[in-house]
Design a binder for these strands. Sequence first.
DNA 1: CTTGCTGCAAAATTTTTGCACGAAT
DNA 2: ATTCGTGCAAAAATTTTGCAGCAAG
Lengths: 148, 148
Amino acid sequence: MTSQPEKHRITHIAEALQAHGHRLTEPRQALIEVLVGSEQHLDHAEILARAQQRIPQLGRATVYRTLELLTGLGLIHATYLGDGRQRFCVPSGGHHHHLICNHCGTVTDLDHCLLDDGLERFAQQHDFTVESHLVELYGICHDCQKAA
Amino acid sequence: MTSQPEKHRITHIAEALQAHGHRLTEPRQALIEVLVGSEQHLDHAEILARAQQRIPQLGRATVYRTLELLTGLGLIHATYLGDGRQRFCVPSGGHHHHLICNHCGTVTDLDHCLLDDGLERFAQQHDFTVESHLVELYGICHDCQKAA
DNA sequence: CTTGCTGCAAAATTTTTGCACGAAT
DNA sequence: ATTCGTGCAAAAATTTTGCAGCAAG
């Protein structure tokens, strides 16, 4: 029941936005807050709905435009959790890795990165600078294995 | 100038389809052939267009339905190459890993899996059976680094 | 002030659905 | 024979666009 740590990250993303020459507006603030404040991975519609709780007249188009902007700057990441729907999250802590159950659809977040070590070495071999990465593991979760 | 190896894989996917109790129809055959026969990662529209070269009257809906079916069975995989568009590929050889340049958009396929070793061990710790996985590395490619 | 950003509403695009016919098993 | 799968066309849902007014820097 606090918004202390969120405030901090809001500032972080917001500042990065401005650092790139973009304006920090009310709608953008709201959208960033929604993203930071959620433990879930939200899609366009969910993000819009939540942001409209603060700014009722906020338009769909703004959500699309802002999400594209933030994604392009690498300030947020898109993820794909098996339902073909694009979702977004703040890459805070660096864990945008998921275990996705093909059976029940449950998504478990991983706080440990499976690649970290091999990544840099690998990228250098390929002369490729990795700015971000996406790892999704699809399979059968603990509970569904028992159930079957 | 050969279709020998492709024929083999077509059979593989087709058989798996039937093994799951689904019918092997003309449209499905065509779609599988398109997927297997392409080195690219195609989206719905591209797959439709190519399949229609063989079956002109093939409908959009069938493409959506078949792609969903094959994906659900794990016979093909969805990938996300940075443009927010869902694409599909046959997981033959097991390399559905990509280097995606954030600057020019070029996609480079990796034939070596970055996870392989750690994967099984890791999954066991989490009591999760990995059926497939997706790894995408976003960054700046060789050429764009020079250009910049 | 000057631009960039926004909301609105329309347009374009994409995806889903219902249904009668045809085909695979 | 029986279902399952298909094409068609309409409907629904999603995403994009144009533009006048507002606001951030």
